[in-house]
Design a protein around this nucleic acid. Sequence first.
RNA 1: GCUCCUAUAGUGUAGUCCGGUUAAGCAUUUUGGCUUCUCAAGCCAAAGACUCGGGUUCAAAUCCCGAUGGGAGCACCA
Length: 511
Amino acid sequence: MPNSNIRVRFAPSPTGPLHIGGVRTALYNYLFAKKTGGTFILRIEDTDQGRYVAGAEDYILKSLKWLGLDPEEGPRIGGEYGPYRQSERKEMYGKYAMQLIENGKAYYAFDTPEELDAKRKEEAAKGNHNFRYDNVTRNEMKNSLTLSDTEVEQLTTNGNKFVIRLKIPVNEAVTFTDLVREEVTFQTNELDDKVLLKADGMPTYHLANIVDDHLMKITHVIRGEEWLPSTGHHILLYRAFGWEGSMPQFAHLPLILKPFGNGKLSKRDGAKFNMPVFPLAWKADSEKDSFLGFREFGFLPEAAINFLAFLGWNPGTEQEMFSLEELCETFSIEKISKSGARFDYDKAKWYNQQYVHATDAATLAKMTRPLVDVKEYEVSDEFLLSYCDLMKDRVVLLNDFLSEGNYFFEGVREYDDKNISKRWNPEIRRSFEALSELINGTADFNANSLETAIKNFINGNNLKMGQIFPLLRIALAGTMKGPDVFRMIELLGKTETVARLKKAMDYFDKI
RNA sequence: GCUCCUAUAGUGUAGUCCGGUUAAGCAUUUUGGCUUCUCAAGCCAAAGACUCGGGUUCAAAUCCCGAUGGGAGCACCA
């Protein structure tokens, strides 16, 4: 149960997969709610029927779930302020729009999209490239301000199409205090008469958003900076409704910028730079509209959260690792930075590595299991557990568990020829044969006793470590890289180790 | 073009409100070293920044003004 009246909402539009900027907005809303003992609400803003994408709502819910950002109210969850899908609230918006018509804060407009388009082109031809439907131009357009009552009467009945526009007052200043940007001012003369209710009877974002935030008793609107320019309209709307007294406070978040070059991070940047910009995979009809997510790239949700939290916020201390719970305790809007943050994929990977290192092998094994199964490797849980324990220090992304030690699962596919030919000779071959015997004869088959036995063997035969270990490693793994050889041998097991040695010796002879 | 927002190393940021004890801290990245059978990890070290120009002041990254750069918005999309 919430123990404060603070209510925040995350209000995505189901037009496709939720990008990472949206996820961060959700995160900050969630953190603020938790920090203040308030309520985190999910509202689906699906007022544009043309842009609705099936599966998008599902995707949003799944993404929040994966990240652990569970809304307390929302579609499929319920709550006392529902419904939480705007398409299901359609009737209310019309009613509120009418209220503004009646008190003179809004008016009917009958200009068709085609007419408006033509008007814009006409103005552009005259050199005026920013035609606005505003407190000047509305006097020469087709609307209830310029037409006679009878004409308006006719045009609004009999199923004629019209929109309702907000009547922006002339020559006023709208000032508000943004929680991250301090005082922001807009001149009403610069604001256009936004459409509130579309010809299809659906509200635009502006109307639906204000009505719902009011009805849902939202106290703080935490959203992306792209909304800052329309906040003037929103405040005017609150005023028009007479709701200014209970208007929520605004906090506009800095944008997430492209990792390289200019502009804000876009969904195409993921494919372009081979990095995830969505939480989960999204499958579309076409290849180019399908994307992998943080999860598929091998990120732990905790790491994604920690990384995202620090993109535009920091606690002001030197602590960098924060669990979701710790973030809930530490988060504060005052610490949000004002300027856009570049998407730093290196830092994201670093966070993941830290989390992988801090996670116990059993948990990692559980997460690696599906990856192993996809590859159709047949390995026991016990093997996978030891494997994860052995390899986790050299893993950055979960998928590295496969690539870094693929030789464990599929045997050696390729030997490092160059490093073999430098070292291999008949004398060493005899040592290897003896070594193979030794390993085969080791009763207590574990890394420690193997180490003692093998080192004794090397010393006892006047050999040097450098003559044996590199070749031994290549024989078992194909490469000079990898974890502790003795632990490798232990994990491979006696039979497999001896078999690999035999195969390797035959191969080495041929180089 | 117009409106609004913003400006500390390659990147993310601390410090800016309440000017001096910090010729700027942390992390990442890069480079080098230690460790080690190798590769990682870990540890140590190095490199690297107050956008510019004016002012105010004994003193400015910090206050004021201007310029420049960057970003967003300007739909019957959200």
